[in-house]
């Protein structure tokens, strides 16, 4: 063992911690280093890739998205005795509560023939939007260890989160359909029939899925920059639930507007939440006030494409910033 030069200092009664050498001066200037990097064709790390190569990169990770999404969905209900049963029990109980409070106690759904089916479909479908937005908002923060250790386009996180919500939704939709059918047996209601329109219902869900991914991108970017937004999102979503007519029809309210506020009625009717609930209900239920409507389909397709494209670009523009905190 060699004797360190600081041995004298250590022998004192109150020794001072040793000091390391001063930081070194670099023998190359910044310009020289950058030139060296360019000469050797090195690519810069941690910068946002061009949009097209980013899209290709995301598509290449499709398997990863699927496995991560399915695993996340599975792990969510893993710590219960009833396990995966909760994936359907949760929305079921949720719907029951709204039916009891708003449908039976408050009678808020006047003007609808089958109140039970109306509220059940509204709550089940809106729940998909709700959980997607919440999941999207947390998708970056909740898996930071993954981001810190592995390379992949960060858009994978919100996409797989919404995918996991879709995976939980599909069995729940089965329960929803059964509940709607059973509601037809309530004496006061007309029976619910299975029609050819039902075949278009999955298309409405696909459009809603695409729309939700767009929303998830946007909230993921916003929440990554400002974690506080996560709290505000809950309130916005609660407002959106009523404004989309998940519990009671907004037409009742819109029809009462004075002619000068007609534009507001249009906004309420064609805002995405209402459009998707309308599409779902018009396909499954035989409500006279909610007939199948081609205009609504156009709106549904338009909102899905617009929101997804906007969200993807918004998210991509923050790509180099995720994972810092």
């Amino acid at each position: 063992m060699t004797t360190p030069t600081t041995a004298g200092a250590a022998a004192e009664a109150r020794p001072k911690p040793p000091q390391p050498p001063e930081p070194i001066e670099f023998d190359l200037t910044s310009e020289e280093r950058l030139a060296l990097a360019e000469q050797n064709g090195l690519t810069r790390m941690g910068v946002r890739p061009p949009l097209w190569s980013y899209i290709r990169d995301v598509i290449r990770h499709w398997q990863f998205i699927r496995v991560l999404g399915a695993s996340t969905a599975y792990s969510k209900n893993q710590n219960n005795y009833l396990g995966q049963l909760w994936a359907v029990l949760n929305p079921f109980l949720n719907a029951i509560i709204y039916v009891v409070i708003f449908g039976l106690v408050l009678g808020a759904s006047r003007g609808v023939a089958n109140t039970v089916a109306f509220i059940v479909m509204g709550t089940f479908m809106f729940r998909f939007i709700d959980t997607s937005v919440h999941g999207g908002a947390r998708s970056i923060a909740s898996k930071s260890s993954l981001l810190r250790n592995l390379h992949f386009p960060r858009a994978v996180m919100p996409i797989s989160e919404v995918y996991s919500q879709l995976a939980t939704l599909i069995p729940a939709l089965g329960v929803m359909v059964v509940m709607v059918l059973l509601s037809g047996f309530i004496p006061a209601y007309e029976p619910v029939r299975v029609t050819w329109w039902w075949t278009l219902f999955p298309l409405a869900i696909v459009l809603l899925w695409i729309f939700n991914m767009g929303l998830a991108f946007i909230v993921a970017r916003v929440t990554a920059a400002t974690p506080d937004m996560d709290n505000i999102i809950s309130f916005v979503l609660r407002l959106a639930m009523f404004a989309s007519g998940a519990i009671f029809p907004i037409t009742r309210f819109v029809d009462k507007l004075p002619p000068s506020a007609e534009w507001f009625g249009m906004v309420m009717e064609y805002q995405p939440g209402h459009v998707y609930l309308y599409l779902g209900r018009s396909m499954i239920m035989q409500e006279k006030t909610i007939p199948p409507d081609l205009t609504m389909w156009y709106w549904g397709i338009g909102w899905a494409i617009f929101t997804f494209a906007l969200g993807f670009i918004v998210f991509w523009r923050g790509e180099e910033k995720y994972g810092r905190d």
């Binding site: 790390m45 993954l146 810190r148 250790n149 390379h151």
Partner: peptide, 24 residues
Amino acid sequence: AGLIPPTEGSVHAAGEPALLGVNA
């Protein structure tokens, strides 16, 4: 490795560096 974005400065690399860790 390009996993934490630099606040200032830049990193240039040939190919993609991979982190081999036990903390993941």
